[in-house]
Every structure is written in C-alpha cells, then in structure tokens.
Write a protein that binds this DNA or RNA. Structure first.
Ligand SMILES: [Mn+2]
Ligand SMILES: [Mn+2]
Ligand SMILES: [Zn+2]
Ligand SMILES: [Zn+2]
Lengths: 152, 152
DNA sequence: TTTTATTTTGCAAATGATTTGCAAAATGAG
DNA sequence: CTCATTTTGCAAATCATTTGCAAAATAAAA
C-alpha cells in the first residue's frame, strides 16, 4: 500500500508520517513535537539536543522534551541516532526508506561533517554473520580526517 | 630497529614497553600503572574503568587514577579506546603494531563480544579521502547482532 | 461542546561517566 | 639521602541523560 499523505495542502513528508504514525500508536500530536521535527527537517547533518534547543523559538519546550521526543521518534524510525565520539548524541531525520542508512566523515579539527554514500560491503558483513553465527547484523561506522580547510 | 626488551627476566611485552616509554617521557613507573596494565593484559576484550577497578586487588588505586592512566596510555598508544554505544568507554591493550587496529561484534542481548579481523576496505576508504579531499582518514566501526545463544 | 481518560510537559532532582583542584605521597635523578 | 617533579586520593564540579510527579494538553467519548 502507498504511504501517500492524504492532506491536500503541502507539508513536509515527515510531518504527515508523524501525524499518521502517532495516531496509530495513540500518541499525541503536540506543538513541541511538530516544532522539533520542523527544526530537524531543515538540518542536513545530525544535530544535538542542544542544537535543536537553540534552533527552536525561545520557550517552545524544555530540553527534556527534546530528549523524550528523540526517544519516541527513534522508536518510530523517523529519526536516527549517531555517535561522533564526543559524548553527545546526534540525531538526523530519516528521509528515504527506513531500511536505508548512511555514514559520515567528520573533520578532527573543525568538526565539519560530510554525508557519505559509502557503506560497509554487505558481502563482508554477511561473512561476519556466517562465521560468527550472529543474526540480524548491523554496524556503526563513522570516518574521521582532516578537511581541506584545516590541512596544513 | 628491533623493539626487543632489554631485561633478562620474563615480563609481558607491554610492561617493558611501558617502562621504556615512560622513561622517555619522564613519567613515572608507579604501582597503580603496573597493576592496571597487569589487569588489562589478562583481558581479551575491551574493558571499562569500572571493570578494571573491580579486577584490581582492593585498594590498589582510585577510579580517578584509572581514568588518568587510560588517558596517558592512550597517548602512548599502548591502549586503544572503544565505544560500544552504551555511554561507557572501553579500553584494550594494543598488542601488535601500533598501526594495526581491529573491530568488534557485540550481541545486542547479552553483550558478548567477538574480536573481528574484518576491517573497512582500504581502497574504499581511499576513495572517500580522494572524493572529499580529507586527509589522514580513520574510522570507528563496530558490529551488533544477536549471538547464537540469544537467538530465539 | 463538555466530560473524561490518557498522554505530555516542565521543573527539580537523580544518575552516571568523566574531569578538575589541590595538598599529600611517591618516584627517580643526582 | 635530598630535591624537583610527577602522581595520587579525595572531594567537588561538569555534563549528558534520565526520572518522579503534579499540572497542562490532547483526543476520544458523551
Ligand atoms: Mn547524515
Ligand atoms: Mn578487541
Ligand atoms: Zn553502513
Ligand atoms: Zn578498520
């Protein structure tokens, strides 16, 4: 079945998904949640809760609400969590298929982020699964380096 | 030139390295540091500071000392830091060449760890470097899955 | 629309890992 | 053994994240 949004007016796909998926789980469509998703839809790289907070109009919601929204959206697979190794979680809106994922390249000096298309080769991953007997394999993978601007 | 230890008596390679490298930096060879390395040399997977603390004879040192030792040993490249995504750093003794590294496969249910030989293909990594203009690329990579014992 | 059941939220406080300040203790060179 | 330097323990600070709870918001029911 198609996932097409039923509304007539134009809205980002994510907000439609949000509405529908929230209803399906008897969760509520609230101002904070819409505002958070609005902010995230304008970001092209993973963002921290602190950054979301800063991008939100003053007083929209508490930081705790953002943490709680991230948990919810993560379980709904509308948002994905990343770890750049600095002790702060980052979140990014899932834009394509839920099954897709991607990785990042981060500058060790200025922290600029590049979105990557390359992924760990699935045949290699299958071999790891076969050799170990593990099932449902997934991976966390991020690259680090020195970006052109930061090179000596 | 060979890295062979000059001492006559038998000691784990790491402790020799420690002694020599510490001298070279005018840092001191202390009881806590030797004890911590002793514990780590008996572990085959990355360990947390809490686990090191627990494995150490009571009263050998404070948890803070372990944190400080990990920082020092990490800069000396005698120890490597890993992140299994649970908010606690893990450390493992570097056993082979300093340039080598490896990754892990962790059970999402029971947390059992498998040491892996597979690594991200270097030709692919070189392509990422070339396409992005980044230099000195490195990567963080860990796999997750369900181990044979935890499978339904 | 009003009522009612349920979910959310804000705020304060708790948790947990890690870091820092500082004076006392340990180490190693001479 | 003495002295300069590095380390350590302990308490307190930081920081991200979580939790408890009563008040506020939302959506289903009447
Ligand atoms: Mn991304
Ligand atoms: Mn390992
Ligand atoms: Zn991937
Ligand atoms: Zn690798």
């Amino acid at each position: 079945m198609s996932q097409k949004c039923q509304h007539e007016h134009r809205e980002p796909v994510q907000l439609c998904n949000l509405t529908e998926q929230l209803r399906a789980k008897s969760r509520k469509i609230t101002g904070p949640r819409q505002a958070i998703l609005e902010v995230m839809s304008q970001e092209s790289h993973p963002v921290t809760t602190k950054e979301i907070m800063a991008a939100l109009p003053t007083g929209v919601c508490d930081r705790v609400t953002i943490y709680r929204a991230m948990h919810l959206l993560e379980t709904m697979e509308l948002v994905r969590r990343f770890d750049f190794g600095d002790g702060t979680a980052r979140f990014e809106l899932v834009r394509g298929n839920t099954e897709d994922h991607h990785h990042h390249l981060i500058c060790r000096t200025c922290s600029v982020v590049i979105e990557l298309e390359e992924c760990f080769p699935s045949d290699l991953e299958k071999r790891i699964a076969r050799d170990s007997g593990f099932q449902r394999l997934s991976h966390k993978l991020e690259f680090f380096g020195i970006c052109p601007k930061c090179q000596p």
